[in-house]
């Protein structure tokens, strides 16, 4: 074998082996690579995560947002379309927070199946368009609500 091809095969072999090792590592670490849990996952492992600081992600259910008597406090329902959870939050909501949109809440699950959030982050989707286009699509009933994963 020419030295050139020998060196080429070394490079390819090393990259393949390291890539394989890395893939296995990342697969093993899958759970900790996840930035947030869905309500379904959380409710299925309720005992494990009760009263622990976690991140929960989901969509804000339409027509579920309510202001609470306490100042700056709100409650709403977060859903992953399979399971839903009532969420309570006191503080300023991000600009992109709205019903039907994705959010990530940092907080903990309490005994009465409520999630008490200490911070809310708005998740935005990968669709970008001018407002007029969005309105026109809505008018023509071609609108598909953006779905976060």
């Amino acid at each position: 074998m020419k030295p050139k091809y020998k060196r080429l095969s070394i490079v390819l072999l090393v990259i393949t082996l390291l890539g394989g090792a890395l893939t296995l590592t990342l697969c093993a670490l899958e759970e900790s690579m996840m930035y947030f849990m869905t309500p379904e996952e959380l409710l299925s492992k309720k005992e494990q995560f009760l009263n622990q600081q976690i991140r929960l992600g989901g969509l804000v259910k339409e027509n579920s947002l309510k202001a609470l008597p306490e100042p700056m406090s709100v409650e709403f329902i977060v859903t992953d379309t399979n399971q839903e959870l009532k969420m309570i939050y006191k503080g300023i909501l991000p600009d992109l927070f709205r019903e039907g949109q994705g959010i990530i809440a940092i907080g903990k699950l309490t005994e009465n199946n409520q999630f008490e959030a200490s911070q809310i982050l708005a998740k935005h989707d990968e669709t970008y368009m001018p407002k007029e286009v969005a309105d026109a699509l809505k008018k023509k009933a071609l609108w598909k609500e953006p779905v976060n994963e």
Binding site: L26, M34, Y35, G57, I104, K123, D125, E126
Partner: peptide
């Protein structure tokens, strides 16, 4: 694409 992230998925190569 593999994991849940706050960053949104790709807009062009998808």
């Amino acid at each position: 694409q593999w994991w849940t992230t706050l960053h949104q998925p790709p807009s062009i190569i998808r």
